[in-house]
Amino acid sequence: MSHRMRVGVVGAGRVGAVLAAGLRAAGHLVVAAAGESDASRRRAAELLPGVPLRKPSDVARESELLLLTVPDDMLPNVVKVLADSGALRAGQIVAHTSGRHGLAVLAPAAAVGARVVALHPAMTFTGTAVDLERLQGCVFGLTAETAEHGLAEALVRDLGGRATWVPEEMRTLYHAGLAHGANHLVTLVSEAMGLLAAAGVDDPAGTLRPLLDAALDNALAHGDAALTGPIVRGDVQTVAAHLDDISVNAPDTLPSYVAMAWATLDRSVTDGRLLPIRAQRIADLLSVYGGPDLEAQFTRTSAPSEVERG
């Protein structure tokens, strides 16, 4: 963006401080930030040295571009309070970074004539300088009125990112996809490391890293075709042994293992890689531990495969 803007950020958390630092590196002037917690203050001092911490309303009044980087559930109230206090004005750019919300939450700002944008980075943040490098090539989920498309894309370019447009009514589903993929991945990997540690592996993370790197690359490139392991092979006895050992040694992990086994079984059948008769045997085994009945899925499988005909 050629115009050098005065930028303010309300919510100097992991996302806000990093994005403000990214915009400053692109030549914009970060004039003020708001953050109440000790962690936010430390983050601002490290990533935005020299930027004063002020009340949210004061930050808004000083800014041409106001970044609202507060938690999703707080965002509606923050926008309303700022608008009702007269801190927002016509022509000002007000952008939030919520994945779930689109433009509706910014209606009070739009009502006073502000230019509104939903600008969500599809990235997990540490709140440190490491994140500035990760912004390069990061995809931002954008929602804006047609007249503001150029503005939104220019902001993303200044941050080193790439834009993808998300319809207003699809914001929640978009965000659910990211949360399911990233947040639940952390839970899954942490539980897998716990199983390896319980098995006596001295370096669970190092053991998993090459396998997970390859699995992630293959999944992103090939989807369900990347599935490997005992379920897609129909190895009922191996799955049974897993369940027995997890029940004894890591019972807290058993519910998620069973849930993911059901989901993997469903996808393996739908993908046509697992014969229904083998799938049913695994389903019978999993049903002992609870979960959905996939019999309907198996019975609606299309015509027999070449293996079955043979």
Rank of each mutant, 00 (worst) to 15 (best):
V94T: 09
R61C: 06
V117F: 03
L68A: 09
P56C: 06
A60T: 06
H101W: 15
D73H: 15
V79S: 00
G91S: 12
G91M: 09
L65F: 01
A90S: 15
A104T: 14
L66C: 12
L106D: 00
G113C: 08
V81S: 11
L67Q: 07
L68N: 12
K80F: 00
P76M: 02
A104F: 03
A109M: 15
A60N: 06
P71C: 10
D84M: 04
L67C: 10
Q92A: 10
T69H: 07
G102F: 02
M74A: 15
D73S: 14
V105W: 00
A87I: 11
P76Y: 10
G113P: 13
L88Y: 08
A90V: 02
K80E: 10
I93Y: 11
V81E: 13
A107W: 05
Q92L: 08
I93R: 11
V94W: 04
A107V: 10
G91P: 11
H101Q: 13
L65G: 09
L75E: 01
A95Y: 12
A104W: 04
A95C: 13
L68T: 12
S57N: 04
A95F: 08
P71L: 10
L103F: 10
V81L: 14
L66A: 10
D58E: 15
P76E: 02
L88K: 06
P71W: 03
V94N: 07
G113A: 05
E62W: 06
H101P: 06
A104K: 13
L65S: 07
V94E: 10
A90P: 14
V79Q: 00
L67V: 14
V117H: 02
A83R: 00
L103H: 07
V116D: 06
T97M: 14
V79I: 11
H96Q: 13
S63I: 02
A60L: 13
S85I: 12
E62N: 00
S85H: 08
A114F: 02
S98Y: 07
V94D: 03
E64T: 01
V78L: 11
K80W: 08
S85L: 12
T69Y: 02
V112D: 03
A90W: 02
R100P: 00
D84Q: 15
T69D: 03
R115C: 00
R115P: 02
P108C: 01
A95V: 12
